[in-house]
Amino acid sequence: MSHPDNNSPQSPAPDSWHRRTLEHKSALFAVLTTVAISVGGLVEIVPLFTVSAGPQAIAEVTPYTPLEQAGRDIYSREGCVQCHSQMVRPFRAETLRYGEWSRAGEYTFDRPFLLGSRRIGPDLHRLGGKYPDVWHYEHMKDPRSTSPGSIMPAYPWLLEDRIDTADVQASMTALSTFGHYTQAEIDAAPAALAKQGEEIVGRLRQSKVENIEADHEIVALIAYLQRLGTDGKKAIKDQVAQTERAQGEAVAAGSAQ
């Protein structure tokens, strides 16, 4: 291919290095592009697999129970994450509203993570234990009965549809690849589902909700929502106390000088 203009007086210079080597050799260009786009991801992601630079584990955090995992799958299916975050930021205005800010180690068994990116509704990471089971039942049935003015849609089908034990076990089997469950726990899932489900149904009955059974989807969802953010609370408390002590000592040392 000739470039007649290259030799004309108007032409600034012969082909540049970029043009001669890279643009001419498309394979080299592709390889260099691959290198360029790989560096950032490698530098940022790979260290997270190391103990020192990665998220600090919290020993008290354990996998979800079968019923909670079933509830988590419902949470994913309904797209709750589109409107609700599960990440309390370390600001006083957030901890006043929601509770202790969220630590990385609390998410160890979150597959997938459900941090969210938009709060059309409030953060849910510290929802566990905040309201009684019946609140969640009423709220999913008619959000405006518990939160006047809410723009959340109602989820009446959760009160009718039922979870499938085999389906929950299939999820557990997949998650056992990552060490969430043992085979014994998977085998015992039907009993575990029934037991935790009956506990919730019992509490709902006390609140005069009669027509719900242990395998209704709403029961699984309540189990999950009541678990949210409850693990590792003590570990965080200890950690906070430690940080405050350290800061206090630093301040004291500073003022002493």
Binding site: Y131, V134, E138, S145, T146, S147, P148
Partner: peptide, 16 residues
């Protein structure tokens, strides 16, 4: 208003 209205309502008229 933060913690109680879910069950007792913003007007304290009750609910759950």
């Amino acid at each position: 208003m933060t913690n109680c209205i879910g069950c007792h309502g913003p007007e304290l008229k009750g609910g759950i």
